[in-house]
């Protein structure tokens, strides 16, 4: 039987756990360390932590929080947000992070991917592809927590980071973030079929079935979600850190995979 990774995304603002809608309107959820402990109990596959203000506000990475989270984490932890230099990266790996996620820095320094991949291996080098459609409905790559638009096509950028040595691409669909509108299968598929490295689809997932479709129809290697695992029954008024059981995952996802 094949398993695929289903990955909760924790977005943090400073030391607070928050959840956004379309990368805006951060809603305070609670303590990120507590969320990690709950995810340990639920035996989640992997956790992605994104500091959504570090790059935007040119702040330093909250290494203390990241170290605390990594120390609590019984599963792999990927960290993104404000990662600008190789020094940052060395520090992140030394405090127990498994993967670093690069985004804003790649606007000017794509070579950092190669340097990280050569040193820590491609599997530890993740690129976040923050994607938003422009007014003509054409998807474009964004940087700095979605604040900075570009004219770059997602497929072009995906191939570029793959050849630079990235081991994985996290598609973060800004238009769908926190909306529960479902994963954008077309967008996911266009990227997943244009590269050979694993693609994690994120943005809009509303159910386990939708996650399964992201794999089966979208062609993603893994699916990540924030709101789905942060709220009860997709109701943003009701905060509840949750994750499907192994039985559910088998029934709803794994048994449908080839």
């Amino acid at each position: 039987m094949r398993r695929v990774r289903i990955i909760p995304v924790l977005t943090v603002d400073g030391s607070k756990l928050v959840k956004t809608v379309k990368f805006k309107k951060p809603n305070y959820l609670g303590d990120p360390i507590n969320a990690i402990k709950i995810f340990n109990d639920k035996e989640v596959d992997e956790v992605v932590v994104l500091d959504i203000t570090a790059s935007k506000n040119n702040k330093d990475i909250n290494f203390q929080l990241v170290e605390e989270m990594a120390g609590e984490c019984f599963m792999p932890l990927a960290y993104g947000g404000g990662v600008k230099t190789f020094d940052h990266i060395q520090k992140l790996f030394s405090i127990g992070v498994e993967k670093v996620i690069l985004n804003s820095v790649l606007e000017t320094n794509i070579d950092l991917i190669t340097k990280v991949a050569n040193h820590y291996g491609a599997q530890s080098t993740v690129v976040a592809l923050d994607i938003k459609k422009n007014i003509w409905g054409t998807p474009k790559v964004h940087f700095r927590s979605g604040k900075k638009s570009s004219n770059i096509k997602p497929i072009d950028f995906a191939q570029k980071v793959e050849s630079a040595g990235a081991g994985e691409i996290l598609i973060n669909n800004i238009d769908r973030d926190g909306t529960f509108k479902g994963l954008d299968m077309e967008l996911i598929n266009s990227i997943a079929t244009s590269v050979n490295i694993p693609v994690i689809a994120c943005g809009g997932a509303h159910s386990i079935e939708n996650i399964k479709d992201g794999i089966v129809c979208g062609g993603a290697s893994a699916v990540a979600a924030g709101s789905l695992f942060a709220y009860k029954a997709n109701n943003t008024a009701s905060i509840l850190i949750n994750y499907p059981s192994q039985e559910e995952l088998h029934k709803e996802v794994f048994k449908h995979l080839s």
């Binding site: 695929v4 990774r5 992997e46 490295i197 694993p198 062609g219 290697s221």
Partner: peptide, 9 residues
């Protein structure tokens, strides 16, 4: 469908 690196559980 399967990719290299083999990544996951």
């Amino acid at each position: 469908i399967l990719k290299v690196p083999h990544m996951g559980w």
